[in-house]
Nucleic acid binder design. Structure first.
Lengths: 136, 136
DNA sequence: GCTCATTACTTGCATTTTGCAAGTAATGAT
DNA sequence: ATCATTACTTGCAAAATGCAAGTAATGAGC
């Protein structure tokens, strides 16, 4: 197995989600309530299916997503965030704040950014609803 | 020029620093007070010099670092954080918190993590000292 | 039970990025 | 004038990415 470059906590994070796609998958889960491979593959940034499959596997292996068969349809797999995955929300919100501040053409609404500033934990609480497996 | 994949603020951030090296350079500036190419190239993660040169260029082009000749030695260039670069600190601290929480072998001290939780803006203020160009 | 559509991937291949080692140009020190 | 230092650049193999097409397993309809 590949060895870690260091045990710097920042490096640990980067080794898991330091790429251009991984956090977008998590975004789609959190913001768009997506749960299936097919839904993820329809992101606005157009992730290729082989990359998507690879990232889902990495996320599962690292305990950020859990995968289970849909109770309604055996050919559908549902991806849920684990607590470790949910704990990425603070990082992601900070990235959103930064991106919204410096991208002059940002799609983020001023209202969202303000809410993040004024009531971060409220935002996180709301976003966290229904992201973990049911019937826990 | 390459077009943006979307104007999602998260995607904007990822397009700039979504890779395994960029934030480590910023970390070295912030934590280890490094400023020169030679210092960056001696990181514990061993970044290759061609990658380093590429990332410094991207960071400069995106207004995160500013480069200037050292007043003491004309062959040395000093890299400083801009305000946009300084604004990456909240994101990076959240990543540190996450990495320290989930890497069982983390090098982060419990004291640091506690300080981040108890007095985030104090930590940011301290870390920010002397990171921008002198004599502004 | 058979056919067809859907879902979740996998595969092949060209292009791009990474990683490693070595090389070069411009100072600065002696 | 020579040598060391600093900041890169270059060449090349290996790995990751991106795109298009293919496949296996279910489910729905007849």
């Amino acid at each position: 197995m590949k060895t870690n470059r260091s045990h710097c906590p920042l490096n640990y994070a980067l080794e898991i989600f330091g790429d251009k796609w991984t956090l977008l998958i998590i975004r789609d889960i959190v913001v768009s309530k997506k749960k299936t491979f097919g839904e993820f593959s329809k992101s606005p940034e157009n992730i290729a299916t082989n990359i998507l499959a690879n990232r889902l596997q990495i996320l599962e292996k690292n305990g950020i997503l859990s995968k289970q068969v849909s109770p309604e349809n055996n050919k559908v797999y549902l991806y849920y965030l684990t607590p470790k995955g949910l704990d990425l929300l603070p990082t992601m919100l900070e990235m959103v704040v930064w991106g919204a501040k410096y991208d002059s053409e940002t799609a983020a609404s001023a209202a969202l950014i303000e809410r993040i500033h004024n009531d971060r934990s409220g935002v996180i609480r709301e976003l966290s609803a229904n992201l973990t497996p049911p019937q826990a």
